[in-house]
Design a protein around this nucleic acid. Structure first.
Lengths: 207, 207
DNA sequence: GTCTATATAAGGATAGAC
DNA sequence: GTCTATCCTTATATAGAC
């Protein structure tokens, strides 16, 4: 007779519901501003029941952060050294922009964490993140040296791509308050703007 | 006999000490994360004494926010319609960057507030901020129409200037974790990068 | 696994002496 | 104006019944 382990199914479902609810709340309130009551309510569970699945508020938060970091770095890993430099970098920018569009809560969670000094994620920044960025910057530099990109500081180029794309998730309220868009149509204009910005910046000829 | 009002002097000094301490704490912890204990300690006062000068935690926070908003918008007001378009926009970008460099706490205070949905400043965004931005965007559009700037979306150009300059204040921990700079030398490289980015983007010829 | 009840601590704010 | 002491609410976490 096959063991179906229904408990595990329920456990998995509840853990996912909790993490999703926690993402919702933490991304808006930050770690200290969020309360277990808010998360429990959003997850459709009682507070003690929530603490049956996770040892503490901190445990929920750190699990969220570590699970997300990998996903967050995927667009950078997808850069192809053998592709066309401008296409590759524009495509990278588009992937980052797409993440701001589809996962604004995740973006705001990181923004909250980093603005507040990255107390729970600093090691990940100086470790795997720095390594990946340095590697990518070196690749960009080889493209520049081969005259396939206009000369530019690779590290700051990467920072500017982060800043401009994440802005539409992290500062969404401000953007909407100024543009007063109907729906998400302004994001198409934003993406077109960013393609122009980086195409003009990276194109090697005629500068 | 002249009334010197020494109390008022002390009051002013203490209020300023409190606001400075509050800026320090709120900019890192956000509104809910900050505690009156932290602010009182940083200001060198007792908690009840702090509440002698301000009615509540919220009163300190909102006074900080409203006092800062004006300063924060000054660089935008300084745009000269009669100046050279590219010079004016590069100079605006430099002024914004300078504010990130000199007032990173103020930048992070706003970042915290806006990332968390701008609950206490939304009216200022849709009111005076939007008005000023729309006005500036219209000015930029006239420059574009006169072929003095390369065609670009004025609103998103402004957003990108905000995003790229404030990034060095708001995400300072991440930038330093990746560059591991000695001191603030990396900010000079950042500024040079941004001048290049916007010069290439805005120059009307040869695109 | 889920609940009610509760222990325990932290934080905002006030009372009242000096 | 500044302090000590304290009230009261909120919030994290646990105990123990079911």
């Amino acid at each position: 007779m096959t063991e179906t382990r229904p408990q595990t199914r329920i456990q998995k479902k509840n853990r996912e519901a909790i993490l999703d609810a926690a993402l919702e709340v933490f991304s808006i309130e930050g770690f200290r501003g969020a309360t277990l009551d808010q998360i429990a309510t959003a997850a459709g569970l009682s507070k003690p029941n929530l603490l049956y699945y996770f040892a503490s508020k901190e445990a929920i938060y750190t699990e969220l952060l570590s699970k997300l970091l990998d996903t967050w770095l995927d667009p950078l890993r997808a850069l192809d050294p053998n592709g066309d430099p401008i296409n590759e970098l524009i495509a990278y920018m588009r992937r980052k922009f797409e993440m701001s569009r589809e996962f604004p809560r995740e973006s705001r969670l990181f923004a909250n964490e980093i603005v507040q000094g990255a107390p729970r994620i600093f090691d990940e920044i100086t470790g795997p993140l720095k390594a990946l960025v340095d590697e990518t910057a070196a690749l960009i530099q080889t493209w520049i040296d081969a005259n396939r990109l206009a000369p530019i500081d690779p590290h700051h180029l990467i920072f500017s791509i982060w800043a401009t794309t994440q802005h539409y998730a992290d500062f969404d309220v401000q953007v909407r308050g100024i543009l007063i868009p109907d729906g998400d149509s302004h994001l198409d204009a934003a993406e077109a703007f960013l393609v122009t910005l980086y195409t003009r910046t990276l194109t090697p000829v005629a500068h």
